[in-house]
Design a protein around this nucleic acid. Structure first.
Length: 544
DNA sequence: CATTTTCTTGCT
DNA sequence: AGCAAGAAA
């Protein structure tokens, strides 16, 4: 459920942009195959069954009646000329890495002009308040003798004669109005900055994008898709009311699902404007204190959510579905696919470790299943998690154990004895594995003792640590000794040894900078993490 | 049991 | 820890 956030404490007028790549996966494929530019094109996932599922459709194809939700075969039917490009496949599953990487390219361009939040593979929020204020101080729009072409094509919500011939003239005038209020002037600066950024994105990545520019995230997001492709839309403060009052409630982010439906059916609210009649108390009573306040606020165009400065994802996941007759019926097939998924996941977390110096700490296995015996009592397959260990084989081992823990629970008391029978009584329709709790490896100088106590949990038992430090360590080791120890002792002990060595060196020589060492040790400790002592167990309810 | 594969956030 | 909802290509 959405939650209300307080407005930023300094209560400055913020300038927020939401940038959205146009039919992103199609653009990525068109960059790879420029012959496809300008042609009706769509990206499909697999093509065995009815031509695969469409996940992105070019604007040319949309004009010819192709929409997402269609299968590849349907698209061919309404638009025989359409070019269908397949998502790359690796390890027997869709591989979205090219799109992730392309998204990163865009982020690195956009992140140059202010706080930047990567909201999804192809969407970014920007807080341009500082840049806009700086521009207004130094080179306000009214001082410019010409306004850049891209900015002149902006759509200004509520500006009259949006469709008149001289629309661009009107936009220029609006952007440069000297009698405008402070808020609008800042917004005009924001629009100029975003137009510039979008041109840079095009120049450096060849991708076009659309954008919304407003005073908060909600409004920016709401309008970024209003004029697509390759255009931007501005929401002056004065047009917020008019924009929202007739807007269907379901168009609002967070209200496209069940919450929006309950607003419609239970309160008879069909537009955002309809919400205005309800007091904050009434909404809190019905939807809880947090969501109630959030609803009351968005009806008034108020949204305090801050742009998080985050350029990287918070988790990595790899999954695959096994629809219809493809459902997995044997433990062996489940293990095979878990192994594929874990292999991909390991590659991605290792990449994250190398490139971004981040370590993932949590590992989760999800599955969906059906029980063919009693389709009446449909049960959710429980997800299970444990500390994450690096290395394909280790992740695979943990994944399989977690899955089996889940399966025991899923089959539950209905423990049908089907050993030796052909029919298991269950089928797995989807599997996924994910790595979360990803934290940056701390850099800079710090105390090594933190790694033993407190801030970071050591993967080694207290006894291991103590006995190693006490027995295995000679005083003041020489470089020679370090080298020979490195060859002799086991991986885990080697890490302990290194920690000790650097700690003691620090004590001996005082001024050794150890930040790189900290990084290395941290990495090695995680890479060498011992397996979990136990995997989640089913709780015996009868025993309680 | 056919859209599939991600990803985030909030509740309990 | 586990789950549900929502959103996006």
């Amino acid at each position: 459920m959405p939650v209300a956030r307080p407005e930023p404490s300094d209560s400055r007028t913020r300038i927020i942009a939401h940038v959205d790549l146009d039919c992103f996966y199609v653009q990525v494929e068109q960059r790879k195959q420029p012959e496809l530019r300008g042609l009706p094109t769509a990206v499909v996932q697999y093509n065995e069954w009815k031509g695969g599922a469409l996940i992105a459709v070019s604007y040319e194809a949309r004009k010819l009646g192709v929409s997402r939700h269609m299968r590849g075969d349907d698209a061919k039917e309404v638009c025989p000329q359409i070019h269908l490009v397949q998502v790359p496949v690796a390890r027997g599953k869709a591989d979205l890495n090219t799109y992730r990487n392309a998204g990163s390219e865009v982020v690195s361009v956009l992140a140059r002009k202010g706080r930047c939040e990567r909201a999804s593979i192809d969407e970014v929020y920007l807080d341009l308040t500082d840049s806009a204020e700086a521009m207004l101080r130094e080179t306000p729009p009214e001082s410019l003798e010409s306004i850049n072409e891209e900015a002149r094509k902006s759509h200004i919500l509520g500006l009259k004669s949006e469709d008149a011939n001289d629309a661009q003239e009107n936009v220029s005038k609006w952007l440069c109005r000297s009698d405008a209020n402070h808020q609008d002037k800042l917004l005009a600066c924001g629009a100029l900055i975003v137009a510039e950024l979008r041109m840079e994105v095009l120049k450096e990545t060849q991708f076009t994008c659309s954008a919304g520019i407003a005073h908060n995230k909600m409004l920016a997001k709401l309008v970024s898709g209003m004029n697509k492709p390759a255009q931007q839309t501005v929401v002056p403060f004065s047009s917020v009311k008019g924009l929202l009052e007739s807007l269907p409630i379901k168009k609002m982010k967070q209200l496209g699902g069940k919450l929006g439906t309950s607003l419609q059916t239970e309160l008879g609210v069909n537009t955002v404007g309809d919400l205005l009649q309800f007091s904050e108390e009434k909404l809190q009573e019905r939807f809880g204190i947090n969501t109630g306040t959030w609803l009351w606020n968005i009806a008034r165009g108020i949204n305090g959510e801050e742009v998080q400065g985050r350029l990287l994802p918070k988790s990595h996941g790899a999954g695959k579905s096994f629809p219809g007759p493809r459902a997995l019926k044997t433990i062996a097939s489940v293990q095979h696919w878990l192994n594929q998924l874990c292999d991909e996941l390991n590659e991605r977390i290792c990449c994250d470790l190398d490139q971004n110096k981040r370590i993932a700490h949590n590992f989760t296995v999800y599955a969906s299943a059906y029980k063919s015996c009693d389709s009446e009592s449909y049960k959710k397959f429980p997800s299970k998690s444990c500390p994450l260990r690096y290395g394909t084989a280790k992740i695979q081992e943990d994944a399989f154990n977690l899955f089996q823990a889940g399966l025991r629970e899923y089959i539950g008391s209905h423990g049908v004895k089907t050993l030796g029978h052909h029919h298991n009584g269950w089928g797995i329709t989807s599997l996924s594995v994910s790595a979360s709790k990803i934290v940056p490896i701390p850099s800079g100088t710090g105390s090594i003792t933190k790694y033993f106590h407190g801030q970071y949990t050591s993967p080694f038992s207290k006894e291991t640590q103590d006995s190693f430090v006490k027995e295995a360590m000679p005083l003041s080791p020489s470089v020679k000794a370090i080298q020979s120890w490195n060859q002799l002792i086991s991986c885990n002990l080697r890490i302990m040894y290194r920690l000790w060595v650097y700690k003691s060196r620090k004590e001996f020589y005082g001024k050794i900078r150890i930040h790189l060492v900290l990084q290395q040790c941290r990495q090695m400790m995680v890479l060498a993490r011992e397996p979990p002592h136990h995997y989640p167990q089913e709780v015996d309810v009868a025993h309680l």
